[in-house]
Computed example of a mutant assay.
Amino acid sequence: MPEPFVLNLVYYQPCIPPNTGNAIRIAANTGAHLHLIEPLGFTMTDQQVKRAGLDYHEMAHVTVHPDLPTAWAALQPERVFAFSARAEKFYTDVEYRSGDVLLFGPEPTGLPDEVLADPQVTEQLRIPMLPDRRSMNLANATSVALYEAWRQHGFPGAI
C-alpha cells in the first residue's frame, strides 16, 4: 500500500480566528496537518475558531508550537515553501511532495523578513493577483496552494 500523501500547513502567528477555523476544516477535508506557531491572536477555545471549523475539529490534526524552531524540530521538513506576495516564483511551478511544508504568515502583514530568510525555507512562492492588491484571505490562499499540491498527486484518498 502506498504511503499517504500528507502536507503540513504552518500558520506563523495567525491573528484572525475564523481563518484558523477555516484552516482546520481544510486540513480535515484534505488530510493535511495544521501547525500553528505562537503567539496566536486568539485562543483555540475562541467561539469564532470553533464556529468556522464547524464539527471538523475532531477530524483535523492540529498542533500548536511555542515557536518556529520547535515546529522545525518536530516536523524535520525536507522542503518548506513560504508564501509571500513579494515572491517571484508561482506556487504552480513546484512539484509538491508528501511531507512538504506550506508556510503562511499572519494577517494582515504576511511573513516577516526574518522568517522568509529562515534557513529552513526552501523557496518563496506567490499566488498571482491583480496589480495593486496586497494579499488574499489566509484561508483562501491556503486552499489554493493545498489543492494544487493535492491535485498534482491525483487527490489520493478523496472520493
Rank of each mutant, 00 (worst) to 15 (best):
A87E: 06
T20C: 04
R79Q: 07
G21F: 00
H61N: 15
L68F: 05
I159F: 15
L116S: 05
V94Y: 06
S98A: 11
R133T: 11
Y91P: 05
E107N: 08
A28H: 02
A117N: 05
Y56P: 00
S98R: 04
E88V: 14
P112T: 00
A52V: 03
Y91E: 05
P39T: 02
F5Y: 15
P128Y: 01
P156K: 08
S143P: 04
P14S: 05
H33C: 10
G31C: 01
D55I: 00
L54S: 15
A145P: 01
I127G: 09
Q13W: 04
E123G: 15
Y91C: 06
P108Y: 09
P128K: 02
H35T: 10
M59K: 12
W72E: 07
H65D: 12
N19Y: 15
T70H: 07
A87P: 03
E148R: 09
A145R: 08
A23Q: 01
H65R: 06
F81Y: 15
Y56Q: 00
T70K: 06
P18I: 00
V80K: 11
E148G: 10
A141W: 13
T20R: 06
A32I: 14
D67H: 01
T70Y: 08
T142W: 03
Q13A: 03
L36W: 05
N140Y: 10
Q13H: 02
L36A: 15
V94F: 12
R126T: 13
N22H: 11
I16R: 05
G110N: 06
L111R: 07
R134Q: 03
A23K: 00
T43K: 07
Q120G: 12
L111W: 09
P128M: 03
H65I: 03
Y11L: 08
H65Q: 03
G99A: 02
T43L: 08
F42K: 05
A82M: 13
R151L: 04
E38H: 13
V64N: 05
P14W: 03
L7G: 01
Y147A: 01
V115L: 00
M59N: 10
F81K: 08
P106S: 12
A149S: 15
Y12C: 10
Y11D: 05
A117D: 04
L36F: 13
M44D: 10
Q124V: 04
L54G: 11
Y147N: 02
Y12S: 07
W150I: 14
V10L: 14
T109H: 11
R97S: 04
D67L: 07
A82R: 06
F42M: 07
G110K: 08
P2N: 09
L146I: 01
R133E: 10
D93V: 15
P106M: 10
P77A: 09
T122P: 01
T122H: 07
D55R: 02
P2M: 05
H57F: 08
M59A: 14
G157K: 00
G21P: 02
F83E: 15
P119H: 03
K50G: 02
L34D: 01
L7W: 00
Y96F: 11
M129C: 13
F81E: 14
T20S: 04
